[in-house]
Simulated assay, not measured.
Amino acid sequence: MADPTTIRGGNIKVLLGNAATPIVYTAPCGFNQRSVTINKGLEEVNIPDCDNPDAVNWVGRDATSMSMSISGEGLLAAESVETWLDAVEDVESIPIKVEWHFPAKTITWTGKAHVESFEAGAQDGRRVSGNVSLQSDGKMTRVVTPVGG
Rank of each mutant, 00 (worst) to 15 (best):
E73M: 05
H101I: 13
M1N: 06
S133G: 02
E79K: 14
T21M: 03
G41V: 03
L85Q: 14
A27L: 06
C29R: 06
S67Q: 10
L42H: 09
L15N: 04
I23E: 07
T110W: 04
E89I: 02
A120K: 14
V128C: 14
V14G: 03
F102G: 05
T145E: 09
P28T: 07
V98R: 04
V143P: 04
G148V: 05
C50K: 06
A20W: 00
A63M: 06
L16H: 00
G72N: 04
N57K: 13
I47T: 10
I47C: 02
I70E: 03
H114V: 12
G74L: 06
G74S: 06
E43S: 12
N46L: 03
N131E: 12
E89Q: 15
S69Q: 14
E73K: 15
K40H: 01
P4T: 03
K13Y: 00
P146K: 11
V88P: 08
K40N: 09
R34E: 01
A78P: 05
A122K: 06
H114M: 08
G111D: 09
C29D: 10
I70P: 05
G125T: 12
W109R: 13
D49N: 14
F102M: 11
L134P: 04
E99A: 14
A78T: 15
T37K: 15
V128E: 12
I38V: 12
F31D: 01
A27N: 03
R142K: 14
V144Y: 03
N57E: 08
L42D: 04
Y25D: 02
I47G: 01
T108N: 00
S35I: 05
L76I: 02
L42T: 12
V143W: 11
K40P: 00
L134E: 02
L16A: 06
A87G: 09
I38Q: 10
K13F: 00
T141N: 11
P22M: 02
N11D: 07
E92Q: 15
E43K: 14
V59N: 11
G121I: 01
G125M: 13
N46A: 15
T64D: 04
V91G: 14
V128W: 09
V45W: 02
A55C: 07
T141G: 00
K97M: 14
